[in-house]
Design a protein around this nucleic acid. Sequence first.
DNA 1: AAATGTAATGATAACCGTTATCATTATCGT
DNA 2: ACGATAATGATAACGGTTATCATTACATTT
Lengths: 137, 137
Amino acid sequence: MITVIITFMQKLTAQRQAILDLINASNRHWDADEVARALVDTGASIGIATVYRGLSALESQGLIDSIQLADKKRYERADKAHHDHMVCTGCGHIEEFSHDTIEALQEAAAEKKGFKLTGHQLVMFGFCRKCRQELDT
Amino acid sequence: MITVIITFMQKLTAQRQAILDLINASNRHWDADEVARALVDTGASIGIATVYRGLSALESQGLIDSIQLADKKRYERADKAHHDHMVCTGCGHIEEFSHDTIEALQEAAAEKKGFKLTGHQLVMFGFCRKCRQELDT
DNA sequence: AAATGTAATGATAACCGTTATCATTATCGT
DNA sequence: ACGATAATGATAACGGTTATCATTACATTT
Ligand SMILES: [Mn+2]
Ligand SMILES: [Mn+2]
Ligand SMILES: [Zn+2]
Ligand SMILES: [Zn+2]
């Protein structure tokens, strides 16, 4: 019998509330540094370590979501349905999409290999509509 | 009129040939450190910086492939058809799979958003057959 | 064969996102 | 109010990767 002790946030502190509010008020995908700068710009006082810890804590509560890109993690609101991402390598724009059939086929593919899925991440790279035009000119 | 000068490898040096041979002789997904250690173990003399540069050069020639995982990049043989990956969070085992319908639907999803795709990466996380059993016991 | 130009090598410093450390501060239950 | 516990913030440390730079290996030209 193994007892696993999980420590949850004792409280949504002022700092964590500020992080959560910031992310919930936008549709962006924030990295830790952007969050820290945005909060400091509004006059809040928050250390970068607190931002990292706050983001982790909020995510483990399911209050925010994240995607792991090549270089860094980016966080976004959790009150949207599951979706995946297209990243424009030209301008960094992130487009969201969801496709039920793709999701179902992933599950089937996992089943065939004996995998018990816990998550997935599909990232597509390319050029957004705007950057495509600039390439043609 | 913009001229882009691309410098290719002048030559497949002994070090890069050794990296390529090592990777081609296995079905593993190697990180840079594993490659370096494996080569040093066979008596070869190669610096870690050379391994990183060699892996990059070989990949840009299309001689090897890579996947970007959360913490590090992993390299594999390029003489297999395109495929995606399932990573076992229990033991690190990487299973490969390919699904033509998923690929086609991705292209369609990109088209709908105006994206010109250049690549994608689908990573599924979960527990492999072996680790599933150990969880149940 | 010798000289020249260019690319690769290897040791190591630097970089960058992230996590660990630790003294201090805030918060919760009693 | 008290004591226990968790969060904060400055900063050090970490891990993977890239940059620097003096040296070495090639290939091409004389
Ligand atoms: Mn999103
Ligand atoms: Mn593979
Ligand atoms: Zn773009
Ligand atoms: Zn496993």
